[in-house]
Simulated assay, not measured.
Amino acid sequence: MSAFLAIVAVGLGTFVSRAVFIVGLGRRTIPPAVIRALDYVGPATLSALIVAMMISEGKVAVGPAEIAGLAVATAVGLRTSNMTVILLAGMCAFWVVGAL
Rank of each mutant, 00 (worst) to 15 (best):
V16P: 10
A61T: 14
P43Q: 10
L46D: 02
P64S: 07
A44F: 10
V62P: 03
V60L: 14
L5C: 09
G77I: 04
V23M: 14
Y40F: 08
A3S: 05
A48K: 09
S17V: 09
V97R: 03
V20D: 04
V62W: 12
P32R: 03
G42Y: 14
S2H: 15
T80D: 04
L12N: 03
V34D: 00
E66H: 11
D39E: 15
A65V: 03
A68Q: 03
I86R: 03
A93L: 01
L100I: 10
T14V: 12
G98L: 08
A6H: 11
W95T: 09
S81Q: 08
V62I: 14
L12E: 02
T84S: 14
A93T: 00
V34T: 06
I67Q: 04
G24E: 12
R18S: 08
V34H: 02
A33I: 14
A93F: 01
S56T: 13
E57K: 11
V60K: 05
Y40A: 07
I67M: 14
M53R: 12
V23A: 15
G98M: 07
T29Q: 08
V76A: 06
F94C: 01
A93K: 00
T74V: 09
G13K: 11
G69N: 00
L12R: 12
V76I: 15
V76E: 02
G63Y: 08
A9Q: 05
S47K: 15
I30K: 10
S17L: 11
Y40C: 05
S47Q: 10
Y40Q: 09
S2K: 13
S56H: 11
T84N: 10
A6E: 09
F21E: 02
P64G: 10
T74Q: 04
R27T: 12
L25M: 15
G11V: 05
C92I: 14
R18H: 07
G69W: 00
D39R: 15
G26M: 12
A44R: 13
G13N: 03
F15P: 00
L49S: 11
V96P: 00
A71R: 04
I55P: 00
G63L: 09
V76N: 06
A73K: 01
M91Q: 10
M91C: 14
F15K: 10
V23P: 03
V34M: 04
L100H: 12
S17Y: 10
E66V: 04
S56D: 13
S56V: 06
V16R: 06
A44I: 05
V85H: 05
T14N: 12
R79E: 06
M1F: 13
S81F: 09
A65L: 08
A61C: 04
I22V: 13
G11A: 02
M91L: 09
A65E: 03
A75H: 05
A89V: 01
L78A: 11
T29H: 09
G11Q: 03
S2E: 13
